[in-house]
Amino acid sequence: MQHRKSVVLIIVGAMLWGTTGTAQSFAPLASPIAIGAIRLAFGGLTLLVLLFVQRKLLISSKSIPYIIAASIAMAAYQPLFFSAVLQTGVAIGTVVAIGSAPVFSGILEWLIQRQIPEKKWWLSTALSILGCALLVSNGDSIRVDLIGIVMALGAGLSFAVYTLISKRLVRTYLPDTIVAVVFTLSALMLSPLLFFYDLSWLLEINGLLVALHLGILATGLAYLLYARGLVGVSSATAVTLSLTEPLTASLLGVLIVGEVLSLMSWIGIGLLFSGLTILSLPSKKRHRGSLSL
C-alpha cells in the first residue's frame, strides 16, 4: 500500500513539473536561468512561511551538512540543465540530463548504499529512457556539443544526488520541512545570478501569474509530493518515475499549445508509458541485493 501511494505521489509531482514548459509559453520572454531561480525562491519561501506558521520548522544541527549538500545539488541542477539545453539543443540536452539521472541514481545506490536495483527497474528505466529519446527528438535537427553534454550529465547527476540525500532526510524529518529549507537555501545560492538578468517581466500580469504557478505548484507542491513519495520507494525508482515529466509536457504541448508530434515521438510516448507502468506495479517480492567487497 505504501509503495502504491508513493508511486502516485511521485507521478503527480512529476506531472506538475511537466506543466513548466506550457506555463512558460504564456509568459513574457525571460531567461530560463532566471526563471529557474525565481521558481525556487517562490516555492521554497511559500513552504517555509507555512511551516513557520505551523511551527513545524525543526532541524537538528547534525543534519545541516546533508541539507546543505541537497541544496547545492538542487541549485546546480537549474543552471546546468538550462545551459545544456541552450548549448546543445532541447533534444540532446533533455535526453542526456533527464535520461542520465536514473542511471546515476542506480549507480549511487550501488556504490553508497550497496543496493542493487531490482530487475524490473532496469527494464523500465531502459524503456523509459529510450521512449524519452524518441519523444523529444520529434524530427528536430540534432547537434552534439561536448560542453553541453557535460553540463547535461552534471544536471542528471545533481538531480540524482538531491534525490539520494532527500531519501535519507525524509526518514527523520517531515518532507515538508526538507523541501522548504532545501529550496530556500538553493534560491539564496542562485540569487546572485538574478543581477545579470532582466526581471521586469515579473511586473507584468502574465509574468507574475506564471512565476506563481511555477514556484508554488510546479516547484513547491511538486517537490513536496516527490519528497513524500520517497518515503516508500528507493531513490533509483523515484528518479525513473520522474520521467513522467517529459511525457506530461509533450501531451500538454499537443492539447494546449497545439504542437504536432511525429510518429516517432508517439512511439516514444508508448515506450515511456510502458516503462513507467512496469515500475508502478508492486513487486511480488521486494528483493534488495548487496555486493560483497
Rank of each mutant, 00 (worst) to 15 (best):
W17T: 03
V161D: 08
I59Y: 00
L40I: 06
L214D: 04
L123V: 14
G36F: 04
A133R: 11
T172R: 11
V150L: 15
G18S: 11
P246Q: 08
A70K: 06
T20E: 02
L272F: 08
N138S: 03
A70N: 05
L185P: 08
L80T: 10
S283R: 13
S235V: 04
V144R: 01
G268K: 05
A180Y: 03
Q87V: 12
A180T: 04
R168G: 10
L16E: 06
A84H: 07
V179D: 02
S280C: 05
L185N: 10
T94D: 09
P117M: 13
R171P: 01
L134W: 04
F195T: 11
L247Q: 05
T125D: 05
V7F: 04
E118Q: 14
P175G: 04
L281D: 04
G18T: 11
W266I: 08
I10Q: 09
Y173C: 00
V49F: 13
K56L: 12
L271Y: 02
L241Y: 04
G43Y: 10
G270R: 10
T277P: 00
E204N: 13
P246N: 02
V161F: 09
G289P: 07
I205A: 12
Q115H: 14
A227Y: 15
G89H: 04
I11D: 08
P102A: 07
Y66A: 14
W17F: 15
L291T: 13
H287L: 15
T46D: 00
L174Y: 11
I178S: 00
Y66D: 13
Y66H: 13
P65L: 07
V96E: 00
L164D: 05
S166F: 05
M15Y: 07
S250Y: 08
W110G: 13
E118D: 15
F273V: 15
L224F: 14
S31L: 04
V136E: 01
A133I: 05
S280F: 08
I33C: 01
A69R: 09
W201Q: 01
W266C: 00
L194Q: 05
Y226F: 15
V96T: 07
E109N: 12
I10K: 10
L164W: 11
V150H: 02
F81S: 06
S234H: 07
I68L: 14
V12Q: 10
I165F: 06
L230W: 13
E109M: 15
T22P: 02
I92N: 02
V96M: 01
E118S: 12
N206E: 11
R55G: 06
R114A: 09
A73P: 02
S191R: 01
Y173D: 00
L225E: 03
V8K: 09
S191D: 01
L86C: 03
K56E: 15
L51A: 12
V231Q: 14
S166C: 15
A218I: 08
M151H: 02
S124E: 03
R171V: 14
E118R: 14
G43C: 10
S141K: 13
F26N: 01
G253T: 09
V95H: 03
V181P: 03
G139T: 09
Y226W: 14
F26M: 06
A218H: 07
F183K: 02
V85Q: 11
Q78W: 07
T22L: 04
K62T: 09
F52S: 14
